[in-house]
């Protein structure tokens, strides 16, 4: 496991470098850059890599928060209505041709994510246990998904193509403008995440024990859920759902540090989330170049492989 732990930072650095250098044009750090290369690097690749790095980390952390607060390794960001909320909001805008400028779609996505999260939290308040809250999240997610499909069933071909990236997640066309929209949310989220840590330590012991130690388990859980929703929403708004990253990253973090707790897993989940997202984005850009494949499809592959592997273990 020590080797694996050392490999993570190396992988992170290597993937960032690859993300900046690989592609057309190929940029080499060993020689000077042409003007075109400078533009490509600074205007396209740097913001995109930055968003992959931070977005992946945020989703990884959000997954950890959900899994720990619901005491279930299967509690994933897809399950609290946030990412589906974003998809639905954008879907409604596109299919009903609402007068919203294309550049504002990320904001619409963000609003949808927030709305989805609020609905889930409101309904989840009625659940009395971690399992019940998980079921409720799943139910709200399904309902939003159904509405999305209902909206989409009235769409035409052109609209499908526009919706595509909001359904599968992709970093295509992410520039400084989008990156700038994400960053403040992250800055706000970091202290909130740290505030969650003591609650996670208590919730991990079970609701009864947490109550005996003086915590209001349901309230604490809702608070953690809200922070997770904030993280997920800020990424999903501009990028679409980065499927499975929030499932894979915490799971691997636990493997790396089997005897730790949320405090110890936090950084690992962030780093691994970033690694998975960067790798998937690299694959999305390069695998079938010049055609870009959806990033979400690659993270889904990673997720499935991991589930299959976990099953054997």
């Amino acid at each position: 496991m020590t080797h694996a732990r050392l490999a993570v930072p190396f992988a992170l650095v290597a993937l960032v470098a690859a993300g900046l250098c690989l592609g057309t044009p190929l940029v080499s750090p060993l020689r000077g850059l042409s003007e075109l290369e400078q533009v490509v690097l600074w205007e396209l690749r740097v913001p995109r890599t930055l968003v992959a790095l931070l977005g992946g980390a945020a989703i990884g952390v959000a997954g950890l928060l959900l899994q720990e607060s619901l005491r279930n390794p299967l509690a994933v960001p897809e399950m609290i209505g946030v990412s589906t909320g974003a998809s639905l909001a954008v879907g409604v805008c596109v299919v009903w041709a609402l007068p919203v400028p294309f550049t504002l779609y990320p904001v619409v996505g963000l609003a949808g994510a927030a709305l989805g999260g609020v609905v889930t939290l409101a309904v989840a308040r009625t659940g009395r246990s971690a399992g019940a809250v998980l079921l409720i999240g799943a139910a709200v997610s399904t309902a939003i998904q159904a509405l999305l499909l209902a909206v989409m069933s009235t769409a035409d071909r052109l609209q499908y193509d526009m919706l595509f990236r909001y359904l599968v997640g992709s970093l295509t066309g992410v520039m400084w403008e989008q990156a700038g929209r994400i960053l403040p949310w992250f800055a706000a989220a970091v202290p909130l995440v740290l505030l969650c840590l003591p609650a996670l330590g208590l919730l991990r012991l079970g609701d009864e024990a947490a109550a005996a130690l003086g915590a209001r388990a349901n309230l604490a859980r809702l608070g953690v859920l809200a922070v997770a929703a904030l993280l997920i929403g800020s990424v999903t708004g501009p990028c679409g759902p980065l499927a499975w990253v929030g499932f894979v990253a915490p799971l691997l973090a636990r493997r790396l540090r089997p005897r730790s707790d949320a405090r110890g897993w936090l950084l690992w989940a962030a780093a691994l989330g970033a690694v998975v997202t960067l790798a998937a984005d690299l694959a999305a850009r390069l695998a079938f170049a010049p055609v870009e494949t959806p990033l979400g499809a690659w993270t889904a592959v990673a997720g499935v492989l991991l589930v299959a592997w976990r099953w054997r273990a």
């Binding site: 659940g127 009395r128 246990s129 799943a138 139910a139 709200v140 309902a143 159904a146 499909l149 009235t154």
Partner: peptide, 27 residues
């Protein structure tokens, strides 16, 4: 349009049932 797909109706009903079941789950 040709109407709502059947699956949307059943999925929404299913979500409601899930919430109902979850709320009955003991604390």
């Amino acid at each position: 349009r040709l109407g709502l797909p059947t699956g949307v109706v059943t999925a929404l009903a299913g979500a409601a049932v899930l919430v109902y079941i979850a709320r009955k789950e003991p604390a």
